[in-house]
Amino acid sequence: MTPSEDDRRAWMGLLARSPEGRVTRLLEVSGLGSGAKLLRPPEIGSVMVRGRAGGTGAPFNLGEMTVTRCALKLECGTVGHGHVQGRRKGDAKAAALVDALMQTEHAGMVEAGVLEPLRSEEAARRQSRAEKAAATKVDFFTMVRGED
């Protein structure tokens, strides 16, 4: 079974954005993913983040961010890639394992044990901020300056 590129993009992004230690912990609890061979041991580096002049115009370099990446191969030969924001080698390895396992018959268990919790936790964090922001939205009202 081959997951679609969109599905893979979605879970890799979710793993990249996960809070420190969370994916490692969830993977441990699920009891999956032993015996993988590291193709690229977890490595910390930077990525130059770009913006666009005027929000939409020509690109410019905004500054760098830290990223940790890792690649590994399962015993069955499936290759997994992990990229996570920040300096967290354990999470990068866990993310690579999740990416690999999601391409195997363990996909259902990994989805339920790791991705689904990450997804709902992220949705809750976003919802909470959006609701606080909404509470600070200005409701204008116009004072009537009548003559009569």
Binding site: I44, S46, R52, G55, N61, E64, K132
Partner: peptide, 21 residues
């Protein structure tokens, strides 16, 4: 920062899609 290997450059960020605080 100067000690970090650079993995590459990002796509330009899309501020129109910002989750605004």
């Amino acid at each position: 920062r100067t000690t970090l290997p650079r993995f590459g450059a990002s796509e330009p960020i899309d501020t129109g899609e910002m989750g605004c605080d």
